[in-house]
Structure formats: C-alpha cells, structure tokens
Lab assay of single mutants.
Amino acid sequence: QVNQQQLQQLMDMGFTREHAMEALLNTSTMEQATEYLLTHP
C-alpha cells in the first residue's frame, strides 16, 4: 500500500502512476522515491 499523497506528488512531478507506485513500494522516503525514479527511467 502506498501513501496516496506521496503518489500524487510524484505524479504532479510528471511521473506516471505506475512508475511512481513502483518507486514508493521500493523505497521508504519521498527523497528515495524521487531518486529511484530519476535513476530508473
């Protein structure tokens, strides 16, 4: 289960819902999730 607010923040940054969910499931903080998305295009 992912934090919906964090998911929305990542989608607002331009990431897809699927990619943002993957990042949130594989990390524990927003900072890590953002870094994950930038390093796993």
Rank of each mutant, 00 (worst) to 15 (best):
Asn26Lys: 12
Gln6Arg: 05
Leu38Trp: 08
Thr39Trp: 04
Pro41Met: 05
Glu35Lys: 14
Gln5Trp: 01
Leu37Cys: 14
Ser28Val: 05
Met13Ala: 12
Leu37Met: 08
Ala33Ile: 00
Phe15Gln: 13
Leu38Arg: 14
Met13Arg: 15
Ala33Val: 01
Leu24Gly: 02
Leu38Gln: 15
Asp12Ser: 09
Thr27Asn: 15
Ala23His: 03
Met11Gln: 11
Ala23Phe: 00
Met30Arg: 08
Leu38Thr: 15
Thr16Asn: 12
Val2Gly: 08
Glu22Arg: 04
Met11Ser: 07
Met13Phe: 02
Glu18Pro: 08
Leu38Met: 15
Glu35Asn: 14
Glu31Ile: 04
Asn26Met: 07
Leu10Gln: 02
Glu35Phe: 05
Gln1Cys: 05
His19Met: 13
Gly14Ile: 00
Leu25Pro: 04
Thr34Lys: 15
Val2Ser: 06
Leu7Asn: 00
Pro41Arg: 14
Glu31Tyr: 01
Met21Gly: 10
Gln32Trp: 01
Gly14Leu: 00
Gln9Asn: 10
Thr16Lys: 13
Gln6Phe: 06
Asn3Pro: 03
Ala33Thr: 05
Asp12Asn: 15
Val2Glu: 06
His40Lys: 15
His40Thr: 10
Glu22Asp: 11
Thr34Glu: 15
Met11Ala: 11
Thr29Cys: 09
Thr29Tyr: 01
Leu37Ile: 07
Ala33His: 01
Arg17Gly: 09
Gln4Cys: 05
Leu37Asp: 06
Asn26Glu: 08
Arg17Ser: 12
Asn26Leu: 03
Ala20Gly: 10
Gly14Ser: 08
Glu35Tyr: 08
Glu18Thr: 03
Ala33Lys: 02
Asn3Gln: 09
Ala33Gln: 02
Ala20Ile: 02
Leu37Asn: 07
Glu35Gly: 09
Asn3Thr: 06
Leu24Lys: 07
His40Ala: 14
Asp12Val: 08
Thr39Glu: 10
Met30Ala: 12
Met21Thr: 15
Met13Gly: 13
Gln4Ile: 08
Thr29Phe: 00
Glu31Pro: 07
Leu37Lys: 11
Val2Leu: 07
Gln6Cys: 01
Met11Tyr: 02
Gln32Asn: 11
Ser28Arg: 08
Thr27His: 11
Thr27Lys: 06
Pro41Leu: 03
Leu10His: 02
Asp12Arg: 11
Val2Thr: 04
Gln1Tyr: 01
Asn26Cys: 13
Met13Glu: 04
Phe15Asp: 02
Phe15Pro: 01
Met13Cys: 06
Thr34Ala: 06
Gln9His: 08
Met13Thr: 14
Asn26Gly: 12
Thr29Arg: 04
Ser28Thr: 13
Thr27Trp: 02
Gln1Thr: 08
Ala23Gln: 04
Glu18Asp: 07
Asn3Ile: 03
Gln32Ser: 10
Arg17Thr: 09
Leu37Arg: 08
Leu24Asp: 03
Ala23Ser: 07
Gln9Lys: 11
His40Val: 09
Tyr36Thr: 08
Met13Lys: 15
Leu7Gln: 11
Met30His: 12
Leu24Phe: 09
Glu18Tyr: 02
Glu31Phe: 02
Asp12Ala: 11
Pro41Ser: 11
Gln9Phe: 03
Leu37Trp: 11
Ala20Ser: 07
Tyr36Glu: 09
Gln8Met: 07
Glu35Asp: 08
His19Asn: 07
Ala23Val: 00
Asn3His: 05
Ala23Trp: 00
Ala23Met: 00
Glu18His: 02
Pro41Gly: 15
Gln1Pro: 00
Leu38Gly: 14
Thr39Arg: 13
Leu38His: 15
Thr29Asp: 11
Pro41Tyr: 15
Asp12Cys: 02
Met30Asp: 07
Glu22Gln: 02
His19Thr: 14
Phe15Trp: 10
Gly14Trp: 00
His40Tyr: 09
Ala20Arg: 00
Val2Trp: 02
Gln6Met: 06
Ala33Arg: 01
Leu25Asp: 13
Thr27Leu: 01
Tyr36Ser: 10
Thr39Gly: 14
Met11Cys: 03
Met30Tyr: 11
Met30Ser: 08
Leu10Pro: 01
Thr34Phe: 08
Glu22Trp: 10
Thr39Ala: 13
Leu7Met: 13
Phe15Val: 12
Tyr36Lys: 13
Gln1Met: 11
Met21Glu: 15
Asp12Trp: 01
Glu31Val: 05
His19Leu: 12
Met13Gln: 15
Arg17Asn: 14
Gln4Asp: 13
Leu25Ser: 15
Gln9Met: 04
Gly14Val: 00
His19Arg: 11
